[in-house]
Amino acid sequence: MHILFVNHAPIPVFAYGGTERVIWDLGKSLVRLGHRVSYLVPQGSHCDFAQVLAIREGVRWAEQIPADVDLVHFQFNPPDLATLERPYLMTQHGNSPEHAPLPLNTVFVSRNHAGRHGSTEYVYNGLDWEAYGPVDFERPRPYCHFLGKAAWRVKNVQGAIDVAGDAGVDLMVLGGTRLNIKRGFRFTWSRRVSFAGMVGGQVKLDLLQGSRGLIFPVLWHEPFGLAVIESLYFGCPVYATPYGALPELVPPACGVLSAGRGELADAVRQGGFDARACHEQATRHFSAAAMAGGYLQIYQRILDGETLHARPPAMTASAKALPWLR
């Protein structure tokens, strides 16, 4: 099978790169299984295991797809999909606007994410854990961490700072800065909170190795949560709100889910979770190989002539402004 991934962001991944990281690891896993993969992405991209084609701006998608591609896998909703006349799949990675129709062949990234769009079609994201290296379970872990785009209000970095402060632990913020002007003018004075910025690569992995837990009190329905499974991989229990996909990712043995600041702070203070159980949760359920297996089943259904939905899926209610009990 020859699959063409189409995305608006370049590859390989730099720093955060959520969607890019997923389709990179998915493509690599498919190649390992004997399939052919190509990427249609912005100019300047490169890949050592797949062909890379540069997007030609202003040219219809149908005219940019090589003739030998079996299935086109979009990572966004293409405006001229009706002209494609090729088997396709679109992964909806984020929360779409309310009542905005999505393509009939749309798949989501968690059960909750699908359900909120009136669908049952989903494939969990997974990562190539070999690229993350071994975990040092004996390393001292003096701080907790927050991982995400702190400038996004729904990620609630201030809630993470408050929980860490109440619990009496230091906090490392990965994905934000001490001075945040994107949310008005916000400066974090506490010296118990450190900021690593939009960090990636080995620096990010080393910081996760040194953490005793992820504090992640998001205020929206998280579609999936790469930050969660990355943290679990490094043996970090998760202290988060119970929104979106998070109950699907974090079983009771691997963390505490609550919309209450006090309850999360108490859980952080008490700790007591098994780092190896957290690691196993990530590797057993959210690997790139498992993700590839899920997508291959859907690819084959589409190639066999099935349409995933009888009518366009659409999000039924707002995913934001969820309760945070202070």
Rank of each mutant, 00 (worst) to 15 (best):
G165A: 14
L26V: 07
P42Y: 09
L26M: 11
I298K: 00
P313E: 01
P312V: 05
H221R: 10
A62D: 08
H73Y: 07
A277T: 14
H117A: 04
V193Y: 07
F14G: 08
M172L: 15
W220E: 11
F216M: 07
Y243I: 07
H2R: 15
V268N: 07
G262M: 06
F108H: 02
R269I: 05
L179V: 14
P97E: 03
L296H: 00
F273I: 06
R212G: 14
A151Y: 15
Q64T: 04
F273M: 04
L205T: 11
G44S: 09
L171S: 09
G272Y: 06
A321T: 08
Q270C: 08
Y88P: 03
A310W: 00
Q281T: 14
S190G: 13
Y239K: 09
P101T: 06
E230P: 00
F216Q: 07
A310D: 10
A227G: 15
Q281I: 04
V203L: 10
F187P: 06
V163P: 12
Y88L: 02
L246N: 06
L214T: 12
E57D: 11
S231P: 08
V157S: 07
D25Y: 09
H93V: 01
G197I: 11
V69F: 01
Q64L: 05
V157K: 09
G184V: 05
T120F: 01
G260P: 00
G159T: 10
R326A: 08
V135N: 05
G115Y: 00
V218R: 00
R269D: 03
D206E: 15
L26G: 03
F187G: 02
L30W: 08
Q92F: 04
Y132L: 12
R56Y: 00
I161M: 15
L33A: 12
P252C: 09
E98A: 11
P312I: 05
T188F: 13
C144A: 15
A100D: 10
I298P: 01
W24M: 13
R301G: 01
R139F: 04
K28N: 13
Q92H: 11
Y124C: 01
D170G: 15
P251F: 06
E138A: 14
A164K: 11
E280R: 14
N105D: 12
E121N: 03
K149L: 09
N95R: 09
A321S: 10
Q209S: 12
D166L: 14
T106I: 03
R178I: 08
A277G: 02
Y243F: 15
L322R: 07
P237E: 04
Q43K: 14
A282I: 08
L30S: 04
C254W: 03
H117S: 03
Q51D: 13
R153E: 14
A62V: 13
L226S: 04
A317P: 02
G271N: 04
G118T: 02
G272S: 05
E222W: 06
S231G: 02
L71E: 02
R116P: 01
L207Y: 08
E63Y: 00
A82E: 15
S231T: 01
L303Q: 00
R139K: 13
F14E: 14
M198R: 13
G225R: 02
Q281P: 02
H309W: 03
G159I: 09
F137C: 07
Y124I: 00
F273R: 02
Y243N: 13
Q51E: 15
A277W: 00
E230R: 02
